[in-house]
């Protein structure tokens, strides 16, 4: 196991290095000159040259890459070419905002999805099961940004009981920060909740048919006891890898919902920095995104192998599954 983990960590490091090259190259392939964004398209060429010089855009690309990599590895993420603020500060506060939204969304998805899945499984075939199935179908079909729009129309415009968006910091205005998260959390969390409900139902049904359950019932243990002890444990272990992937995609994929609710998160920072060709910010964010994905895949794989020892050998052979 240790060897497997170490091997994967080494592999991740190499992949991340490769990712930094890819990210750097892709960004430079994009048309658009940050010096012109800064100085304006109609600035004189002497001015533009001066700005380019200051931004270090005159160095050959490999030199620029190596300089950036060296600074990056030593923890110096540089400054935004537009605002001049430290990248660590910009990226840090954006990621914190997105992480908070990811947390509330995951909580909502678990808090709604797991009970619904349990209900559906325990009352399999009844109207409750079908109702949950219906909910799942609808929730998985409703685009989150549209739901967000409708929630805003209803709760922020018509009833004015919830903010349509927000930028309050948790540390300064906890109440404001949390209230501004309510609508985006609902909009973002509904589909994952349905996904978890489906998974939970499937896992529970599977376990209920496992022989040990029948044995347990035969031994006279109460159904409630069996549920508490074995079933939930099994379900949660089953859900954990999925949750890891869910968290990963929420962290990196909330750009559109952040735009709808004007949340200053990582997704919006990406959109904004791309518009301004703010290389330093983009490079850092994208490398972090790739790292997040590598990490959740890794965690999911480890969890799978803990769950099912048979997987471990398979994982070691194939170098990871998805």
């Amino acid at each position: 196991m240790t060897r497997f983990v170490l091997g994967r960590v080494a592999q991740m490091a190499v992949t991340l290095l490769g990712a930094s090259v890819v990210v750097f190259t892709v960004l430079r392939l994009m048309p658009g000159d940050p010096a012109l964004v800064y100085a304006g398209p109609f600035a004189g060429s002497d001015v533009v040259e001066a700005v380019r010089d200051r931004m270090g855009l005159h160095d050959p690309l490999p030199v620029q890459y190596l300089l950036w990599l060296k600074a990056f590895v030593t923890g110096d993420l540089g400054v935004s070419s537009i605002s001049g603020l430290p990248v660590s500060q910009l990226v840090g506060s954006a990621l914190a905002q997105t992480a908070l939204l990811t947390l509330t969304t995951s909580l909502l998805a678990i808090g709604v999805g797991v009970p619904l899945g349990l209900l559906a499984a325990l009352r399999k075939g009844t109207w409750a099961d079908r109702l949950v199935a219906g909910f799942n179908t609808v929730a998985l079909g409703v685009p989150n940004f549209w739901l967000g729009l409708i929630l805003v129309i209803v709760f922020a415009i018509n009833f004015s009981i919830l903010p349509a968006g927000g930028s309050a910091k948790l540390t300064e205005d906890p109440l404001g920060a949390l209230t501004s998260l309510v609508l985006p959390t609902i909009a973002l969390g509904l589909a994952p909740a349905a996904m978890l409900a489906r998974l939970t139902r499937g896992a529970v049904i599977e376990v209920m048919h496992e022989d040990f359950m029948t044995m347990a019932a035969a031994k006279g243990m109460s159904i409630g006891f069996v549920i508490r002890r074995s079933l939930l444990r099994h379900v949660f272990l089953n859900l954990l890898p999925v949750l890891a992937i869910l968290v990963g995609s929420l962290l990196t994929g909330a750009a559109i919902i952040e735009s709808v609710f004007t949340l200053p998160g990582a997704g919006r920072l990406i959109i904004e920095s791309t518009r301004q060709r703010d290389y330093a910010v983009l490079q850092t964010l994208l490398v972090i995104f790739v790292a997040v994905f590598l990490l959740v895949t890794f965690v999911a794989d480890i969890l799978y192998s803990v769950l099912d020892p048979r997987v471990r050998g398979h994982l070691m052979r194939e170098g990871g599954v998805r």
């Binding site: 992949t15 990712a19 990196t252 990406i270 791309t274 994208l286 995104f289 790739v290 994905f293 590598l294």
Partner: peptide
């Protein structure tokens, strides 16, 4: 496979 690792890490918006 390592390339796909990187590719999957890019959000669709980017």
């Amino acid at each position: 496979m390592r390339l796909t690792d990187i590719g999957i890490g890019f959000p669709v918006v980017i």
